[in-house]
């Protein structure tokens, strides 16, 4: 399952062949580099590639070089298909049913009050929020809290996201894109407010278009911890396509 949902790669050097199981739609650039290095380190030439795409199919390649070329080709084809799935453009506070966002920005300053923030999230922003903590050791962004207002998550999926990395969403590409937004705010230290037009693929469901305005902002740090908060409002009047 980890190959089907997270884009990790399973490799094995067996007596018969080098075996690689890969989901080209999800695999990350770094995983792909790791695979190329692993291939270069092996002996033997014959490679069996298991490709996950609505079930598994297998291809046998006579050499490592051809296998590498084939894998890069499979991944590139998927990348072309997902280009343009996640679009965003800067939103104006005035245009984005601004009051709750403005209140949130005001509350998340140095005198941040948890109770008031929770009230704004619940009553002004339909409980659509994600609270993320930077783990200083690993540099990962960990989801520490999540509102119940997000549609599309099954109960089990929600539980698996909590305490995990922000990138590990049921749609991993979407998770990486969301993670990029958090990291941008982390780097710049200023809130990000944007309109989003995203096509999200939840496992087992048809791709669905989600339109919303999102605010990502740093929350005042205490005890040296770094926290970020993302909140969003669904809006039917966004069209970035």
């Amino acid at each position: 399952p980890i190959l089907e949902t997270r884009g990790w790669i399973l490799v094995e050097n067996s007596a018969i062949a080098l075996k690689i199981d890969i989901n080209p739609a999800l695999v990350s650039e770094k995983a792909l580099c790791g695979l190329i290095y692993w291939l270069a380190d092996q002996e033997g030439e014959r490679v069996i590639i298991g490709v996950c795409d609505d079930g598994w199919s297998h291809e046998v390649l006579p050499s490592r070089r051809l296998a590498q070329r084939r894998i890069v080709e499979l991944v590139s084809a998927c990348r072309r298909n997902r280009d343009g799935r996640f679009l965003a453009s800067s939103a104006e506070l005035a245009a984005a049913r601004a009051a709750p966002f403005r209140a949130l920005i005001a509350e998340c300053g140095p005198t941040a009050d948890r109770g008031r923030i929770a009230d704004i999230l619940r009553n002004g922003l339909a409980d659509r929020y994600t609270a993320v903590r930077l783990d200083p050791g690993s540099g990962e962004l960990i989801v520490e809290g999540m509102g119940e207002g997000y549609r599309g998550y099954a109960a089990g999926q929600r539980a698996s996201i909590l305490n995990g990395r922000v990138e590990d969403q049921p749609d991993y590409d979407y998770g990486r894109w969301v993670g990029d937004g958090f990291r941008q705010v982390l780097k710049q230290g200023t809130p990000l407010l944007e309109d989003v037009d995203a096509i999200i693929n939840w496992p087992g469901a048809e791709p669905r278009r989600h339109l919303y305005t999102r605010l990502v902002l740093p929350i005042a740090r205490k005890k040296g911890e770094t926290w970020l908060l993302s909140a969003s409002l669904e809006r039917s009047d966004i069209d970035l396509r």
Binding site: L10, V11, G34, L35, W38
Partner: peptide
């Protein structure tokens, strides 16, 4: 021996 390559490109034992 089977190994996993994670999304950071690290090899992990399976």
């Amino acid at each position: 021996e089977s190994l996993l390559i994670d999304d950071e490109g690290r090899l992990r034992k399976y």
